[in-house]
């Protein structure tokens, strides 16, 4: 990694993460070798088309899905090696929030008890202390505990359920949150409320975020860095402002040009990415994007492009990046 990044502390170190599913005799490699770091206190956005493996990545980091290969290090602990109680203790440091807020909460439980689930599970607090923690959490996420604390989850709208999910995920004071499409099902006005709430809580709790979404505008608004995924691999990763201004991977460029800005004067891109991603059962050789890439050559079909560093923290896996390699940048390291 480059100099500017090295003085930030790495919270999560992921090396060669792979997740494979068996479908009969065939193997779906949903996550096909990811190397990345998440720095303490940052938000890393993860974007890509449906089925590219975003959720599987998130679940594998939480070890909800057992990775087929690779290591995940949280701080100094290699959690992929842990088992049993130690694993559960490590998992407390990471929490996941899902897309479907209503089905991820038990409709027959009271809001208070839902938020207290992790506390009760770990017997972290009892009696008045427990009540106080819940009271504070609910107040923080904008749900009045005196009015709503004793209601059942099924009586809440999508946005309110998502607030409750956030409160629950913060109950054990985790270091990291993995948000999987957490605002995708919400109306714009509610989505904005939740995104702002997330920003506030991130400041207050010093959280590190992996923010998975397919909406490029949402991801840009919340992330410090963004990773673009295609068929189980990263195409490009970099600071969001740099990458959105100057995408280096053809796929990123296509994604950005397809995104619709709510502005009649925004540029119209008539050249859109044709077709749909190939099946992960049978990914193309070499560069996985080559079947849809206008710049593909024979090299792309024969050789898998390695991640190369363009400038500080901006890396791309393409033989012919759209942005020149800055000479000042360090050559791609082993972890790049």
């Amino acid at each position: 990694m480059s100099e500017t990044n090295s003085d930030k502390k790495v919270l999560l170190e992921v090396r060669d993460l792979r997740v494979e599913f068996r479908k009969g005799k065939r193997v779906v490699s949903a996550v096909a070798g990811l190397d990345f770091d998440i720095y303490e206190g940052e938000t890393l956005g993860l974007v890509g088309e449906s089925g590219c493996g975003k959720s599987t990545t998130g679940r594998a980091l939480m070890l909800i899905e057992q990775p087929t290969a690779g290591t995940v290090k949280l701080g100094d602990v290699e959690i992929t090696k842990l088992k049993g109680r130690a694993l559960r203790a490590a998992r407390r440091q990471m929490q996941m929030i899902f897309q479907d807020p209503i089905s991820s909460l038990n409709p027959r439980r009271r809001v208070k008890d839902i938020v207290a689930e992790p506390i009760d599970c770990w017997r972290a607090a009892k009696g008045e202390e427990r009540e106080k923690i819940i009271f504070d959490l609910l107040t923080k996420v904008g749900i009045d505990p005196r009015v709503y604390g004793n209601r059942y989850a099924r009586q809440f709208s999508g946005g309110q359920c998502q607030r409750i999910s956030i409160a629950r995920s913060l109950a054990m004071k985790p270091q990291m949150l993995i948000c999987d499409e957490m605002v995708s099902a919400l109306d714009v006005s509610i989505q904005a409320q939740i995104l702002n709430l997330l920003e506030d809580l991130k400041e207050e709790y010093g959280l590190t975020l992996l923010f998975i979404a397919h909406d490029l505008a949402v991801v840009k608004n919340v992330s410090d860095r963004v990773a673009v995924m295609y068929l189980g691999k990263f195409c490009e990763i970099g600071p969001s402002d740099v990458m959105y201004a100057e995408p280096a991977h053809p796929y990123t460029k296509f994604l950005l040009s397809a995104a619709l800005e709510a502005d009649p004067d925004s540029p119209r891109h008539d050249q859109v990415l044709e077709g749909e991603p190939p099946s992960p059962l049978d990914p193309p050789s070499g560069c996985r994007f080559r079947t849809r890439c206008p710049n593909a050559t024979e090299l792309c079909a024969s050789t898998v492009p390695e991640m190369q560093t363009l400038s500080d923290g901006h890396q791309v896996a393409c033989h012919f990046p759209l942005v020149p390699v800055r000479r000042s940048a360090a050559p791609a390291g082993a972890d790049a």
């Binding site: 714009v188 410090d224 995104a259 800005e261």
Partner: peptide, 25 residues
């Protein structure tokens, strides 16, 4: 106006605050 301002835009810089509409539809 509120709808337009609460819609995230690609042209926004990262960590820019969205204007929200309180309450719900």
């Amino acid at each position: 106006e509120a709808l337009l301002k609460s819609t995230p835009k690609i042209s926004n810089s990262s960590h820019s605050r969205l204007q929200t509409i309180p309450g719900r539809p």
